[in-house]
């Protein structure tokens, strides 16, 4: 009996490995290992840290695409909101810590900062859903994908320049959340900030996945993404779910922005790079596929790190764009495909 189950499992695993998704994932891991052996461990570390954070942004983007059918162009701006909030919350904490080094905030300050950024990001998401997207949804659902896309373009311009207007265009950054020596693992030095950022990403992705899979609300969100009318029939409140989705996806972007504040200081157009990366990921892994976005994020991160490593910095837009174009030609629905056809059919 056990043997049979084991055999069945192996057969399924083999089939997955032979499918395109499995082949790409395995290929990515092999390439990552080869590059690591060739150039040293820091490539792997960079890939994992960048990938973890890209996964957060891309997951939010995939969620808005799947549930609300909005191709979000303004998602990077919630990243920007996160980093801006983190800067303004963390700076007073830091000055307080200088006078009270033994305070409990030394350990918990960064966490408080990131939670504050998450909350502000969620509120920003709710506000833009209520003030902008719901207004359009009530008026016209005709040609929704294109129109909402243009709305997000306007939103992006608005937020970038409002940042410049109210907070100035200078770089508002910190040197790091944690001071102290970097951690040494197998001759690779990882700063504490990077390690914590990756851990945080892992925790958030796992928590998010559990939420989507095992809670009633998560199931409701997935139901709406599969079929809006059907969800309405079984008694799911659409407005609430859409607001919640928007809050969640914007909060994810804001977490990424806050925990990467030491790498990307807050300035008006800081969100553009994560936005491009997230779009690469979402197209690569299939529009609206949330779990695929996590795997896709590591692939895009590896691709980017490799481009910088072998070709030179500055090419890291050209090579991924070229690859995405090739993928779009041959696999318009992405590598992992997507069970959510909504966006594609409208």
């Amino acid at each position: 009996m056990v043997e049979q189950a084991e055999k069945h499992l192996w057969a399924r695993l083999l089939a997955w490995c032979r499918s395109l998704a499995g082949a790409t994932v395995i290929g990515t891991i092999v390439i990552a290992l080869i590059v690591t052996v060739d150039r040293g461990g820091y490539v792997l570390v960079n890939t994992i840290v960048t990938g973890g954070m890209t996964a957060l942004v891309a997951m939010g983007l995939a969620l808005t695409l799947g549930v609300l059918n909005i191709p979000m162009f303004a998602h990077g701006e919630y990243f920007m909101i996160g980093s801006l909030t983190a800067y303004y919350v963390f700076t007073p904490i830091k000055t307080y810590m200088e006078t009270h080094p033994e305070s409990i905030l030394a350990l918990w300050g960064p966490l408080v900062t990131i939670i504050a950024a998450m909350l502000v990001g969620a509120v920003a998401g709710v506000v833009s859903e209520v003030l902008v997207f719901r207004q359009l949804r009530q008026r016209s659902r005709e040609n929704w994908v294109m129109n909402s896309f243009l709305l997000t373009v306007g939103l992006s311009v608005l937020m970038i320049n409002a940042h410049q207007l109210f907070f100035g265009a200078d770089f508002k950054g910190i040197t790091g959340y944690f001071s102290g020596m970097p951690i040494n693992i197998m001759d690779v030095y990882i700063s504490k900030d990077r390690a914590i950022a990756f851990l945080l990403a892992a925790v958030v992705v796992t928590g998010f996945w559990l939420f989507m899979t095992y809670t009633r609300t998560g199931r409701a969100i997935r139901a709406v993404s599969q079929d809006e009318t059907g969800a309405l029939i079984v008694g799911i409140g659409l407005n609430g779910i859409m607001m919640l989705t928007m809050a969640l996806s914007c909060a994810l972007a804001a977490i990424a922005g806050a925990s990467l504040l030491f790498m990307y200081p807050a300035y008006p157009s800081v969100g553009l790079e994560p936005l491009y990366m997230a779009w690469f990921v979402v197209i690569l892994s299939g529009l609206g596929n949330v779990l695929g976005a996590v795997m896709g994020a590591f692939m895009v991160a590896l691709l980017k790190v490799m481009t910088v490593e072998y070709i030179g910095s500055g090419w890291d837009f050209v090579v991924p764009s070229a690859l995405i174009i090739v993928i779009l030609i041959f696999r318009p629905s992405g590598i992992f495909g997507s069970e959510v056809r909504g966006v594609l059919d409208k």
Partner: peptide, 22 residues
């Protein structure tokens, strides 16, 4: 002295036109 103001107006106008006066 208010850099970015004209682009804020841009963004707001685009959103308002898209929603209320397509």
């Amino acid at each position: 002295n208010l850099p970015g103001l004209h682009l804020v107006i841009y963004g707001i106008l685009l959103i308002v036109v898209m929603i209320y006066y397509p």
